[in-house]
Every structure is written in structure tokens, then in C-alpha cells.
Design a protein around this nucleic acid. Structure first.
Ligand SMILES: Nc1nc2c(ncn2[C@H]2C[C@H](O)[C@@H](COP(=O)(O)OP(=O)(O)OP(=O)(O)O)O2)c(=O)[nH]1
Ligand SMILES: [Mg+2]
Ligand SMILES: [Mg+2]
Length: 578
DNA sequence: GCCGTTTTCGGCCCGACTGTTTTCAGTCG
């Protein structure tokens, strides 16, 4: 899909093979192997075809990929197909995989429904539930039928993923409310949100309390709860009125650390960790680390990792993408932190009187920023003299503000300039020369082919006034696919020419995405973090850029805006050869 | 399917909840 289109294609094939094998009742371990490989490829930052140049041996060295899957990858790369996949598709009717998407219906139930009633579509399932045909089936009673009938209405909501920035702050309000319950000692947001994944399937909330049942009962009565799917002693699953699914788990305060570790995942990370524990004769569950009947850790996460001889691993790294090996070998990265972000490298001053530049400067100052790159994207590029006048006006206004607020924070004059299809910029160089920082981005002609798109971006980066490639993939989550380009070449060029590439944290963009950002950094690129804020309260999207940077394994020195103002300005000058 | 300073065969994370089960299978996190 992104850098690595083949990675995504092969991942999809492996995931489909897993579903079909699952349906057919194949070994659950084989199913898991295909699923885990699919997840691994989805997050793999290097193009698989590049790795495959090293042959089967190189592929076999990847985790979750052994001899068989390496062969299948090579088969796909040379023929565009995987025979096993094609053969399974002949055996498994299209549509039954849809049936398995219904909450509460797994491979066994789907198979039963197909074998006994020939059900292959959601409509057929609905009909069979309504006319009572399913009642004769083994394991089907009144309650189950009612439950599935209800589930059918939830297929879409349950499958939906939400951009993290659409739900993160609401999630924190829920956590605060849980914490304010008298029985609750701590509460935290876990799951993919704590790992700063760009989208989340649900919210996973953990609470510590000695009275689990009371907490779950109070939670399902929160006013934003629309319906309760499940409410047991230690957990509850609900849908909010917003359509968001929320899982609550309640554990004893003693188990806070192991509970956090369990509920933060990722699943693959935890399985790997638990495997290490087994090798040492230990057992990890959400209640602690156990040596026989004796509990040897669990109060804090650091204790859990410590019981395996590992340092604490930051949640954004917990994807089983090499972080456990790095922890074992003492080479975890020193991840960049929010405190180390000295400024925001892109905000859009499109605000009316309400959110003036001065207000913005104040808001930025209260976040502790030393600088703010003000990116105009409107009138600067007017043809001829008019544009130049606009640019000079902007620069003058910013200078005035810097004088009046004593440069706290210092506002940098800048622009995000569109790249024309041929790689020239929408703004002439005389105007760019007026500005302290110039970002460029693709914001038209998204569908150029890979070669043309790559040429276009490289040419734009060659412009000596350009500092940063912004919103590189131009995607919008769930709305616009990323452009196709040879990111390896682009990153190599950026690294060589000393230009930065952006991670725009604006919630619907997150661009670069995590895996591409990791690859960029591996190739020596410096990343520039920004909120992309168009309003005052959007400065907080910097946190999403930062979370993405952490998922990309970035340390402070790989992040442009971990530099203070003086260092930043000398970097900006150096890019322009000054 | 993968994996291996105990193994190249025989393991593979572990538990909660539900419904229908008369002792547990299926699904999910
Ligand atoms: N040990 C173990 N933990 C699991 C398993 N499935 C889920 N978990 C833990 C780790 C997950 O991060 C956490 C929450 O489960 P979710 O299904 O909500 O997954 P997660 O939040 O990671 O991704 P999401 O964005 O919700 O799809 O529960 C599992 O099979 N085994
Ligand atoms: Mg989740
Ligand atoms: Mg969940």
C-alpha cells in the first residue's frame, strides 16, 4: 500500500489463506502462522521484493517467515499468484469469510452454517435466524439466536477502525471518569491507542480495583454508553453512542503492571514475551509473572519485563518488530519524547480574529515551544509582483509579532508549497527566498504513475530553497489512498541532500505513517514533526506525530525539531548552502 | 505454518465469558 505495495499484497493473501484454513478446520497453529506472517508483512518497512533479492535465505531470516512462506513470497513475486491461495479459494465459497466477521461467529459456526444450511451471505444468515431454521443445529438455542440476530446489526461497527485522533481525547475523559469512581485506584488507556497506532478498532480501558463487579456495573451505566454487549465480573464490552466500541477490564491493584502489559499488547508482542517466560520455566498472565504457584512480579510493568531480564519497553515499540531482541541485547532506542520537541514545524494561520497569530503564539508558548513554523498556503503564490508583495507582508507581520512577544516562541515565516506534476513548485524562487522555512507537498495529480511521481518529488527536493518534504504520501486515512512512489529513492535522496521529511500528525493524515517513517530513518533521513494545526486546539496533534515517531523507533537526534531555535536556524541555513 | 545455547520433532500464550454442555467448545481479548 505505501512504500511497500508488495508487502501489503502478500500480507493480504496470507491473511486470506489463514481465514480459509481456519474455516476448513486446519491446524490452529498453521492458521496463526499465516496470520502472524501477514501482520508482520503489513508492518514491515522494507520492500519485500528488495529483501527477496537475497533469495529464500534472506526471506527465511525474517521472523514469522520460514521455508514455506519464503517460497510463497518468491512465487508471488515471480508469478503474481500463490497456488495455495487459488486452490483454497476453489474450496471455500466466497462469502463465508463475511459470515466469520459477525461478532460471535467464528470458523466453527460459519462452517456449521454452511454445511447444514448452505449459508454464504449475511442476508441468508439473517433469514435463517428469523425463520428458526438454525434452531435445530447443535449448540444453537434461543439465546444464541437472539445474540446473533443482534450481532448482525453490529458487523460494520465492529469492523470499523477509527483514526486515533478522533477518539484519543474522548478516551482520556472516560479514563478520568473511571478514576473518579470511589472504588477505582488507577485507570489507564491501553491497547492500540496506548501504542499510538494511527487507527484503533476499539478503546481498551484498564481499571484497578478490589471491587471489580461494582466498577463494571458503574461503567456500563456511563451516559455515553449506548448498548452493553457483555458484562462479567472482571470485564465489560460496550458500544458508545458514537459507535465506538470500548472494552473495560478490571483487575486487582496488585496486578496493575501485569494487567497493563497484557492489555497493551500487542498480541504478537505478548505471545513472544510469554514464550520467553516459558523457556525460563515462568508463566505470564494478566495477574503477574509466576514461578509455579509463586508470584514473582506484576505490580509494575517494569517488574514484569524485569522478571525476564529485560528493560521496560515503551508501548509504541510493542509490535514484535524486533523490540524484544533489541531489549535483550541492550539496544533499545532512546525514543524521542514530547519534552524534547522544541517547536511545531507546521501550523496553518488560516484563523480569523478568534485564533489570531498572537493567540497561536501564546498557545505554543504554553506548550513550551521555542518556535513555530507558520506555513501560509494561500495567497503567496499569486503570479508576479502580487505574490511577492504578499510574501513580504507575511514576513513583516511575523517580524512584528516576534518583536512584540520577544520571540517567545519565535515564529518562522514559511509556506507549504504545492509540487506541480512536473516537479516545479507553485511558487517562484524569489518568493521562497523570502521565507525562513519552505515545505513542499503533493496536493494535486495524486494518480501519476510511480515513476512520474518519484521524478516529480525528487525534482521538487532539488530546489535549493526547499527544506522539508511535507505530507509525503498525501493520503487521507480511509479517504484517499497514498500516492505511489519509489520511497527508497526519495529517502535516499533526502538523506544525501540533507533535507528533512515530515511526519504530519494531523489526525486524518498521519503522514509519513509509522512504517515509512521507520524506513526513512533507517536510510538516514531526518524527520520533521508537526501538528498541521488549522486551529488553536489542534496543536495537540503534535502528540500523534510524536507517537508515530516513536513507533518508527526515532531518537531525538533523528528529529529536526528536537533542535533548539539556534540549531534549527543553522540547519535551515545549511540546507540552503549558507 | 514457525522455531531451536535444552530440541530438527514436537512444542506452539493464557484466561474470561457465554450458552448449552452434564463437563466443555467456541469466541474473543
Ligand atoms: N495474551 C493475549 N493478549 C491479547 C490477545 N488478544 C488481545 N490481547 C490483548 C492485547 C491487545 O492489545 C489488547 C486489546 O485487544 P484488541 O483486540 O482491542 O487489540 P488492539 O487494541 O491491540 O488493536 P485494535 O486497534 O483494537 O484492533 O488485548 C491474545 O490472543 N492473547
Ligand atoms: Mg483495541
Ligand atoms: Mg479490545
Amino acid at each position: 500500500m505505501y512504500l511497500a505495495m508488495k508487502n501489503a499484497e502478500i500480507a493480504r493473501i496470507f491473511a486470506e489463506i489463514a481465514d480459509m484454513l481456519d474455516f476448513l478446520g486446519d491446524s490452529p497453529f498453521r492458521v496463526r502462522a499465516y496470520r502472524a506472517a501477514a501482520r508482520y508483512l503489513t508492518g514491515l518497512d522494507e520492500p519485500i521484493e528488495r529483501i527477496a533479492q537475497g533469495g529464500e535465505k534472506a526471506l527465511d531470516e525474517l521472523p514469522y517467515i520460514g521455508h514455506d512462506l519464503a517460497q510463497k513470497i518468491l512465487e508471488y513475486l515471480s508469478t503474481g499468484r500463490v497456488r495455495k491461495h487459488e486452490e483454497l479459494k476453489k474450496k471455500v465459497p466466497a462469502g463465508v469469510l463475511q459470515i466469520m466477521r459477525v461478532p460471535g461467529v467464528g470458523p466453527k459456526t460459519a462452517k456449521l452454517l454452511y454445511d447444514e444450511l448452505g449459508i454464504t451471505t449475511l442476508a441468508e444468515l439473517r433469514a435463517a435466524l428469523n425463520d428458526g431454521r438454525v434452531l435445530g443445529l447443535p449448540g444453537f438455542g434461543e439465546k444464541k439466536v437472539e445474540r446473533l440476530r443482534h450481532s448482525l446489526r453490529l458487523v460494520e461497527a465492529a469492523a470499523k477502525r477509527h483514526p486515533l485522533g478522533e477518539v484519543l481525547w474522548q478516551a482520556r475523559e472516560l479514563v478520568a471518569r473511571l478514576e473518579s469512581l470511589p472504588q477505582v485506584e488507577h485507570a489507564a488507556l491501553c491497547g492500540s491507542a496506548r501504542r499510538y497506532k494511527e487507527t484503533v478498532g476499539d478503546l481498551d480501558l484498564l481499571a484497578a480495583s478490589r471491587r471489580a463487579r461494582a466498577v463494571a456495573d458503574a461503567f456500563v451505566r456511563f451516559p455515553e454508553v449506548d448498548e452493553v454487549l457483555l458484562a462479567g465480573a472482571g470485564r465489560a464490552t460496550v458500544f458508545l453512542k458514537t459507535g465506538l466500541q470500548v472494552d473495560l477490564k478490571v483487575i486487582e491493584p496488585d496486578s496493575w503492571g501485569s494487567g497493563l502489559q497484557y492489555f497493551t499488547g500487542s498480541k504478537d508482542h505478548s505471545i513472544h514475551l510469554r514464550g520467553l517466560a516459558m523457556d525460563r520455566g515462568l508463566k505470564i498472565n494478566e495477574y503477574g509473572v509466576w514461578k509455579g504457584a509463586e508470584r514473582i512480579a506484576g505490580a509494575s510493568e517494569a517488574e514484569v519485563y524485569g522478571a525476564l531480564g529485560l528493560p521496560w519497553i515503551p508501548p509504541p515499540l510493542r509490535e514484535d518488530r524486533g523490540e524484544i531482541e533489541a531489549a535483550q541485547e541492550g539496544r533499545l532506542p532512546q525514543l524521542v519524547s514530547l519534552r524534547q520537541v522544541r517547536g511545531d514545524l507546521k501550523v496553518f494561520p488560516k484563523w480569523g480574529d478568534k485564533d489570531s497569530l498572537a493567540d497561536l503564539a501564546k498557545a505554543a508558548a504554553s506548550r513550551g515551544y521555542g518556535y513555530l513554523a507558520v506555513a501560509d498556503r494561500s495567497s503567496l503564490c499569486a503570479a508576479g509582483e502580487a505574490g511577492l508583495q504578499e510574501a513580504k507582508k507575511l514576513v513583516a507581520e511575523i517580524r512584528r509579532l516576534n518583536e512584540s512577544n520577544d520571540g517567545k516562541p519565535y515564529l518562522l515565516s514559511g509556506a507549504e508549497v504545492g509540487i506541480l506534476p512536473d516537479g516545479r513548485l507553485e511558487c517562484p524562487d524569489e518568493i521562497l527566498a523570502q521565507l525562513e522555512v519552505v515545505l513542499v507537498s503533493v496536493r494535486s495529480h495524486y494518480d501519476l504513475d510511480r515513476q512520474a511521481q518519484t521524478r516529480r518529488i525528487l525534482r521538487a527536493l532539488e530546489n535549493p530553497y526547499v527544506h522539508v518534504l511535507a505530507r509525503p504520501t498525501a493520503r487521507k486515512i480511509d479517504e484517499r489512498a497514498p500516492i505511489e512512489a519509489d520511497w527508497e529513492r526519495i529517502f535516499e535522496f533526502a538523506a544525501r541532500s540533507g533535507k528533512a521529511v515530515e511526519i504530519d500528525g494531523f489526525y486524518s493524515h498521519i503522514d509519513l505513517p509509522d512504517t515509512l517513517a521507520r524506513r526513512a530513518a533507517e536510510l538516514g533521513v531526518t524527520l520533521s514533526l508537526s501538528s498541521g494545526a488549522k486551529a488553536l486546539d489542534q496543536l495537540r496533534f503534535m502528540e500523534l506525530a510524536l507517537g508515530t515517531a516513536q513507533r518508527a523507533w526515532l531518537s531525538a537526534k533523528q528529529v529536526l525539531n528536537s533542535r533548539d531555535l539556534r540549531q534549527l536556524r543553522s540547519w535551515l541555513a545549511r540546507v540552503r548552502g549558507q
